[in-house]
Nucleic acid binder design. Structure first.
Lengths: 351, 351
DNA sequence: ACGTTTTTTGGAAGCGCTTCCCGATTATGT
DNA sequence: ACATAATCGGGAAGCGCTTCCAAAAAACGT
């Protein structure tokens, strides 16, 4: 069996309380004793049993992250910044994967029930109003990341602003018929991005044309935020023939990938025949020269955990509902002025 | 405070032992009593405290995954299959992120010390021989995923076979001067892939030419397995002028991305001037038409956890060192015969 | 030197569970 | 009806720690 606090106590000729005090930098202990105990600790290579500590302290030093894994690259960046913060604070991350995004309630229930975590990070999940109350009633605090919620503390990208800016960029480039391909409106980002798109049109005295908006089918999964859905949506746009838009704001980069494929198959050129701007700035967007709105994933994760820690430490004041601005990254898919930074240009004619 | 086993016992008019037996499907309990207790459990919404259970049972129902996050898309697939298996078995996943791959020993030490996990999955880390002994000496079993180790149970892709096949594909296409861009040889996969490359040359009576092999600089990070390193390596290849290879096996898809960029900048065409085959089949390879060796990530993860569970349950027999075959996915970057499945072709001339 | 404070320490109680021992209860055999 | 065996259930002990209380030791004051 592993060495316990009793072994250390006996060997050091002190009580277990003293060992505990020595280990935990308790002020009321004689420095000499402390040194002696710590010496034995090192000699015996004693390591407190985390579980036992957690039980006694009623504090687990780990937090839960509930994530639906469908959003790929996104999570890496998010988890990176989250784990960085956590390991700096000696916290562990317990990962709960929600396979289908219908099951998140069950998973979250489980997390709430077993008290093995001090806080919960709910990622990319649109928490219903009723469930929000349940979360609020729970003793362990939660923060929602990548989704806004007016009851629960949350941090997300400013979808509306981003969409507005993306659309506006296209308009500024001279386009009069700017269409949009969106994810299914059952998802919060899809709704906000649509609003942003409409707002941009309005502010620039352009009419909103129903025909120029294609909502992706949610049945394909991921609320329509994937390549296939984008491909199919673009096929619909192509049906418009002469009524086709000259520019397109695509609600996500993965969808834009599908859009590009469909456009190519139709024998059309980007950006000449169709200018497009995406959303997300996934890793590969720069390789295909996709102009897009960059999401500050790292910052989002960091802000999320930080707030969670404030909540856990009772330092939280008012509600926290942060919207992080998306940043326009200009590449080639939109035509117009281009940036020629490394890895960015992709006329692709040479392949 | 939350409801404990004592509350249930009192309410049901039984002893705590009985409640425990009822909860854990212990055979020696009267079905009637069990039903009654379970009724109270439901009424009180009692949920055992996982930590307390773990302490008493000396079993935590969670496993650790130690991962260096630099390999992006890869992990998503891996973690997906791992978490799927775990949640099916009611196990939790504790994620330990190794930021720089030099710190993995420290992290692993920590994981070994705090006994809050029943098993360890070491992912994409080349464990040294000495450390392997330390792992073996530990009570909690470990399995290495995405890296072969002759002491510790491990599962990885057959790098050598994959590299051989990739190279051979190029040779079969008629290329006589097939070069290679590899990651730094401080990494295990880089070594094996180089061996495979050489083997293919040998088997096809082609000479190995030192000049046609470029090893990426490890200083750039990730053992040279990234876009920038690939770009720089290709720059070197381009220096060869007339002595340039007509085909190139690139040790990873991300590097291939950089290679493509450099080629394009040089005004050359893929596959006409240079045929390339990558390794990994990251998500975006199909969008850029990169011929590559597909790694069976999902299978790798599944096999890894399954073996870990066998180990945890004492069901493990002999050593387990599985090499999973990589599969050649033919797209456009290699020239020759092409597959024209959806999303696969990318002449890209139209952008 | 002796009474008071202040430090320091030992170790019991408790965190919420499982498990084991043993006594109580019920069933079985004759 | 009584002895014996089988089944059930109560609750103490223990998992490895923290924390609190009271006692011991040291420091201080006069």
């Amino acid at each position: 069996m592993a060495v316990t606090i009793y072994d250390v106590a006996k060997r050091a000729g002190v009580g277990i309380g003293t060992v505990s005090r020595a280990m935990n930098d308790n002020p009321g202990i004689n420095p000499a004793t402390k040194a002696r105990v710590l010496g034995v600790v090192k000699k015996l290579n004693y390591q407190p049993h985390t579980l036992a500590q957690s039980l006694a302290r009623k504090k687990t030093f780990s937090i839960a992250a509930v994530v639906p894994f469908f959003t790929n690259y996104f999570f890496i960046e998010l988890l990176k910044s989250i784990t960085a913060f956590l390991s700096r604070n000696n916290y562990n991350l317990i990962l709960y994967n929600v396979d289908t995004h219908y099951k998140w309630e069950r998973t979250l229930d489980r997390v709430l029930a077993d008290r093995s975590t001090d806080g919960i990070l709910v990622i990319s999940i649109g928490v219903s109003d009723e469930y929000a109350d349940r979360l609020l009633a729970n003793t362990v605090p939660a923060v929602i990341v990548d989704n806004l919620n007016y009851k629960i503390d949350s941090v997300a990208v400013a979808n509306r602003q981003g969409a507005r800016e993306a659309t506006e960029h296209l308009i500024k480039l001279g386009h009069k018929k700017v269409g949009m391909i969106d994810g299914h409106l059952s998802s919060f980002p899809a709704i906000s991005r649509l609003q942003g798109y409409k707002q941009a049109l309005l502010e620039n005295d352009l009419p909103f044309d129903d025909e120029l908006l294609v909502i992706c089918d949610a049945k394909i999964g991921e609320h329509g935020f994937n390549e296939i859905a984008g491909y199919k949506a673009m096929k619909e746009v192509l049906q418009l023939g002469s009524k086709m838009p000259t520019a397109l704001f695509v609600a996500s980069d993965v969808q834009a990938l599908g859009v590009m494929r469909a456009v190519k198959e139709a024998g059309l050129h980007i950006p000449d025949d169709l200018a497009i701007v995406g959303f997300d700035d996934i890793e590969f967007s720069r390789f295909i020269g996709l102009t897009t709105m960059r999401q500050p994933f790292g910052k989002m994760g960091r802000l999320g955990v930080e707030r969670l820690f404030d909540l856990m430490n009772g330092k939280a004041d008012a509600g926290f509902h942060k919207e992080l601005k998306a940043e326009l990254i200009v590449r080639e898919s939109c035509g117009g002025e281009k940036s020629f930074s490394a890895g960015t240009d992709c006329e692709c004619k040479k392949y």
